[in-house]
Each structure stands twice: as C-alpha cells, then as structure tokens.
C-alpha cells in the first residue's frame, strides 16, 4: 500500500513539476536575466496588455521589444529586487492553476491560455475587490507598460518622443568622469565651457532626440 502511495506521490510531483516548469520552448539566449519560461510569460503578458494592431500604435508588446527591455531592466536591478520581480512573474504565471481562467480549459498556466483568456485573467486581477490583487496587477502592468514605452516607434506614434537637447559643459563636467571610468576619461577642457549652445525654451515640434528619430 505504502509503495502505491509513494508511486502516486512521485507521479503527482512529476506532473506538478512538468506543469510548472516544462514545455516553454527555447528562449532568446542573448538575454542575460530572464529564463525561457520568464521570457514566455513576459511575452504573453505584454501581448495581452498591448495586442497587435490598432492605428497609430500598431505594435504589440512583444513587437515593441518588451521582452528584451524587461530583461535589461531586471539586469539593472539589485539581486533582491530581481527576486521580487521573478516572484511576481511566477505568481501570475501559475495563479490560474488555483484561480482558473474562464472556460473548461481554464486550469492551465497563464502562457498556455488563449489570448482572450489571458486578457480575462488580467482583467480579473485589475478589477478585484482585494487591494493586494490589484497591486499585483498594477506591478505587472507597470513593468510591461514601461517596456512598451521604451520603444521609439511607440513614443513617436503617441507624439511623446523626447526632444533634442544639447548639454552645455559646466564646472562639474571637469570634475566627474562617466560612471565606472577614471578621471583621466574626462574629455572636456575649461575652454569647452565657453561654447555657446541654445538655452532657449524647446520647440515642442522641434527635432527629436537622435535616438528617437525615424531612422535611428
């Protein structure tokens, strides 16, 4: 009898592990932080929040490069903050195993749901009467929204791309090198402070910052 229970226990554990961690396909190996399952989750969540198509903002979340941006963001965080973000992704990816998505096949992890089910799941978190669920949703949406807005085409489409602006050279530029470099890397001289540059108010319709231009 106890052998049977052991067998059943192992089988259940195997099923649970497969359900939780397997079947994600290969991720982008160029990314530094996100594992393939996390990449899949971010892609699915970004496309649920920002689906493809729709006029001036045609790009979907993943087309806008959300996965790579989230990877870069996570990479720039402290180890503790990374853990928090990973927990958030894990929680939302697997919450549907406990609180199913609508439909007979709703007990599947988030990335296995249909696009419509994913939207319904996130909407339920968003509209939950429980403040903590709303906070979890807002945290996820904040991450994918910031990633979506990192895309120059998106910002241009919204008319909110940063404008070109030159930095004058000031005393501080003769004291501090760029971060991580020694002071010998300071490339300015006192004469650079004399260079005349525009200091007038920006023109809201003036040229965009080079990194946000059409052919950047």
């Amino acid at each position: 009898m106890s052998l049977l229970w052991t067998f059943l226990g192992i089988a259940f554990a195997g099923w649970a592990v497969a359900r939780l961690f397997l079947g994600y396909g290969a991720g982008d190996p160029a990314l530094r932080q996100l594992a393939s399952r996390e990449q899949a989750f971010v892609r699915a969540a970004a496309d649920a929040v920002f689906p493809s198509g729709g006029g001036a903002l045609a790009l979907s979340g993943s087309e806008a490069g959300a996965v790579a941006h989230v990877d870069r963001y996570v990479d720039s965080l402290s180890p503790r903050s990374r853990v928090l973000i990973r927990l958030l992704f894990f929680l939302l990816e697997h919450a549907t195993l406990v609180f199913p998505a609508p439909g007979w096949d709703g007990i599947r992890r988030f990335t296995k749901l249909s696009p419509a089910q994913r939207v319904a799941v996130l909407d339920a978190w968003q509209r939950s009467p429980l403040a903590v669920r709303r906070t979890v949703f807002q945290s996820l949406r904040a991450i994918v929204t910031m990633a979506y807005f990192a895309n120059a085409t998106v910002l241009r489409g919204m008319g909110l791309a940063p404008l070109e602006m030159e930095s004058p050279v000031i005393d501080a530029d003769l004291l501090y090198p760029p971060i991580g470099r020694p002071k010998s890397a300071i490339r300015f001289t006192p004469a650079d402070r004399e260079r005349t540059i525009v200091r007038a108010p920006l023109d809201p319709h003036g040229p965009l910052d080079p990194a946000y231009r059409e052919n950047a």
Partner: peptide
C-alpha cells in the same frame, strides 16, 4: 556615483 549627462537614461524604467 556622480552622474554626468552621458550617464543619464531618458527611458524612465532604466
């Protein structure tokens, strides 16, 4: 560290 304009990131999250 001291930040110079070369170190600023216009992208909010980063």
């Amino acid at each position: 560290p001291p930040f110079t304009p070369a170190d600023y990131e216009i992208d909010g999250a980063i």
